[in-house]
Design a protein around this nucleic acid. Structure first.
Lengths: 169, 169
DNA sequence: CTCCCTGCAAACTGTTTGCAAGTAC
DNA sequence: GTACTTGCAAACAGTTTGCAGGGAG
């Protein structure tokens, strides 16, 4: 049974959404890629989503504004957006990948295990740990992952509500 | 000043290796599973490896002591070992899974991107970060991943050596 | 002797590639 | 008009499932 998540949350005002989308389209164009209807549709979805989305979800969502869209084109467009640093790949607990608009600078993600909403945060201070570990174990440490998983406040409320309903049965 | 605790992997002696393997086999048996040649082979490989191994690697390695072994049995055995907490799944950079003997308590991994050797470490102090983030963003944080990637000292030396060889050409 | 376990083959999922038709510039 | 893009179909890789034969206890 595959879960399909419908995106209803908007990131910002219409105006701001258009700004981000336009920015990304400009960057695509400036990098020598052509602006086509399928690409516009995928960019619009990725530039606006607050959720981590896997390729199939991006496909379903983007097809709403480009009905001829194929899944293959989604893969290819996501590849280009990642290459340009506009989105980043998120490693999910189940091993699959999802994507989300890239954060600025070095940031990490806090992801809701229930609805897949994601928040960036910084402020982790791993530098001392990495330095002393590298020295101690003789590793040249190149990269690190830090990702937090939890339940967002909205999903907590939903869960409470459903528990109450079950309690009255 | 943060305290860092390093737990080094020690090359186990033959005797210790056998001990670990036996321990795991006992746990399997105690859990109601039968001890068969294919399972012994997989357990032996997993109980002794200092490297993260994907199912195919486990298969190739284990088949050396059980030539009739099938890949499917490797998947099924790894599933049981994970269920018993003897091994843990490692999320790799490329999205695939590997497995390694489980660490004791809450630990994290430092993995060599070149040879896949892995070291456990603890001493990350993420509790304050997690607490303040949870409060600030309204998340109930349930879990976190921290994984470091780098190049181990042996691979660094190999790389240097091959650079020198290339330099003389 | 019984039930669990195994290997094979086939199904399945997520992703990539080859290609002819279509389209941005 | 040219070269890049697209969607389809098929190939691919990793993983899971159905099943009949085989082996542990």
């Amino acid at each position: 049974m595959k879960m399909i998540f419908i995106i209803k949350w908007r990131r910002a005002t219409e105006q701001e959404e258009d700004t981000t989308t336009t920015l990304w389209l400009n960057k695509l164009e400036a990098s020598g890629y052509r602006l086509t209807a399928p690409r516009r549709a995928v960019v619009k979805v990725m530039a606006q989503s607050h959720f981590i989305l896997d390729p199939t979800q991006v496909f379903l969502e983007s097809r709403r504004s480009c009905s001829s869209l194929g899944l293959v084109t989604v893969y290819r467009t996501l590849e280009k957006l990642e290459e340009l640093g506009l989105i980043q790949r998120v490693h999910r607990e189940d091993g699959c990948h999802s994507y989300i608009a890239a954060g600025q600078g070095h940031q990490h993600l806090l992801i809701c295990s229930s609805c897949n909403k994601a928040e960036y945060f910084s402020g982790d201070d791993l530098a001392p740990l990495i330095e002393s570990l590298g020295a101690e174990l003789g590793y040249e440490i190149k990269d690190h992952w830090l990702q937090l998983f939890g339940i967002c406040s909205q999903c907590q409320q939903k869960n409470k509500a459903s528990e109450q309903i079950q309690g009255t049965e």
